[in-house]
Design a protein around this nucleic acid. Structure first.
Length: 420
RNA sequence: GGGGGAGUGUCCCGAGCGGCAAAGGGGGCGGACUGUAAAUCCGCUGGCUAUGCCUUCGUAGGUUCGAGUCCUACCUCCCCCA
């Protein structure tokens, strides 16, 4: 938190002390606005994927804190803007999605929000409009005359998102060039409809958001504010949330609560404190205590992080189960019943199931070829025994007391294959 | 419209005299060391019913015993001139 600025409002105080603030157009002005307890703010979410992933958690948490400190969050679905595609931070043109894809994605994304905030009709209840509501029916000529005339192409060309493409001689289509105009218009529209005065987003959204402030001023809205969060990277420099296994999805169908818990449990030491602030709601004093742990002890902090983050997203029961599964798997070394489980007909075991295919079937490896390679590298285990023979088969005698075999890839990935 | 250049292992970047399942790097995965961490070191990084077979170098043809490599057409992207 900057020495020169001590927020008086609970909202900004929370955001600053937890590390959510990268840039803010007018901290003092916004603070005053937030302090009187009527702050309405929005964040837009594109519908480009079937679910949100951890990267979106930062903005979601900002809305969470907004509501918790007496404000009204608006989670804007980008059903309309996704039809256009945001060029910000992208060095290539986005593929245009069909309306059907967008709708399907939107449905998947919606689910997550209710876990982080309360929706309803009340003063501080969150709402979730879709900008398709007003963007789809915009009349091109009217839009140009009423809104378009306020945009300076000179200034748009100077924006980072545009300049980057131009400097690199990379194509920037007209449709993408329009994106920021639509987003700016969203902001004004949300101000008119809901009295929204603050737009938040990732740091790559700064230009788009400020364009909205500017448009608001020209169209005579009240003072609008912009606030962006830093891009969250790992201490080791990598982008967060992108593993080879794919994105860390927030949808339980795409990434199980157990795997989600594991994702947080494996946080790098140097990131623990920062992540506890950003991704849990633990009191700062508690976080300070946890992040001071060193050596082996910091694992306690990581478990806390995993528990809290999983609890927020998937609920108390799922978090407790994931924690227990992890404890039994890693600390007791047993095959917990609650490990991710796959089923196969018992007859397969009677006939003798090839190890190679067994590992492919549960998705631990992508092909029998990869299975062979992993065996050569000593990476596969059946019931905790390293597999040495590619041609080994699993018979009924491989089944443990619980009627399943435990298959492992490396030390961390374990699943059960159950005979049914 | 004219001239020049480029598209390589479906993660990315990038070498590639006509014998190539194709150098190297990043990333990723696995192993060792640890604490389910980081750093470091080592191995692997097309598919299969596997001592062999099949499919890969923008697309489609052609030359050749043999084509990522040569020829033709087409597609896409970039640069220069108009």
């Amino acid at each position: 938190m900057p020495e020169t600025f001590r927020p008086k409002s609970d909202f900004l105080a929370a955001l600053y002390e937890r590390g959510f603030v990268h840039q803010c157009s007018d901290p003092a002005g916004l603070d005053a606005k937030a302090a009187d307890g009527s702050l309405v703010a929005y964040i837009g979410f594109d519908c480009t994927a079937p679910s949100l992933h951890v990267g979106s958690l930062v903005p979601i948490m900002m809305l969470h804190w907004l509501q918790k400190t007496g404000g009204k969050p608006i989670a804007l679905m980008g059903g309309g803007t996704t039809m256009v595609g945001d060029p910000s931070g992208k060095d290539e043109t986005r593929k245009l999605l069909t309306v059907a894809q967008i709708d399907a994605n939107k449905a998947g994304i919606r689910k997550v929000f209710s876990r982080f905030m309360t929706f309803g009709e009340g003063k501080t209840d969150a709402i979730m409009p879709d900008n398709a509501e007003w963007l789809v029916k915009l009349n091109y000529l009217e839009f140009l005359r009423d809104v378009g005339r306020h945009f300076s192409v000179n200034r748009m060309l100077a924006m980072d998102s545009v300049k980057l493409r131009l400097d690199r001689d990379q194509e920037l289509s007209f449709i993408e060039f329009n994106y920021m105009c639509l987003q700016a218009y969203d902001f004004v529209e949300l101000h008119r409809r809901y009295g929204c005065v603050l737009q938040m987003g990732g740091s790559d959204q700064w230009g788009n958001i400020v364009t909205g402030l500017d448009l608001g001023r020209r169209l005579g809205t009240a003072q609008l504010y912009a606030l962006t969060s830093p891009l969250i990277t790992l201490a080791s420099g990598a982008k967060m949330g992108k593993t080879a296994a794919g994105a860390v999805w927030l949808d339980a169908d795409l990434l199980s609560p157990y795997d989600y818990w594991q994702f947080w449990r494996n946080t790098e030491d140097a990131d623990v404190g920062r992540f506890l602030r950003l991704f849990t709601t633990l009191p700062i004093a508690e976080i300070v205590r946890l992040e001071r742990l060193s050596g082996v002890e910091i694992n306690e902090a990581k478990k806390m992080l995993a528990n809290e983050a999983t609890r927020l997203l998937h609920g108390e029961a799922a978090a407790a189960e994931a924690a227990e599964t992890a404890r039994r798997t890693f600390e007791e070394g047993e095959a917990a019943e609650t490990l991710p489980t796959f089923e196969t007909p018992a007859a397969d075991f009677d006939a003798g199931l090839g190890v190679l295919n067994a590992f492919v079937r549960v998705g631990l490896v992508a092909s029998t070829g990869e299975a062979r390679r992993q065996i050569r590298g000593g990476g596969l285990k059946v019931n905790d025994e390293i597999v040495t023979d590619e041609r080994a088969t699993l018979g009924r005698d491989a089944l443990l007391a619980n009627g399943a075999v435990k298959l492992s890839l490396g030390r961390k990935k374990h699943v059960l294959l159950r005979a049914v």
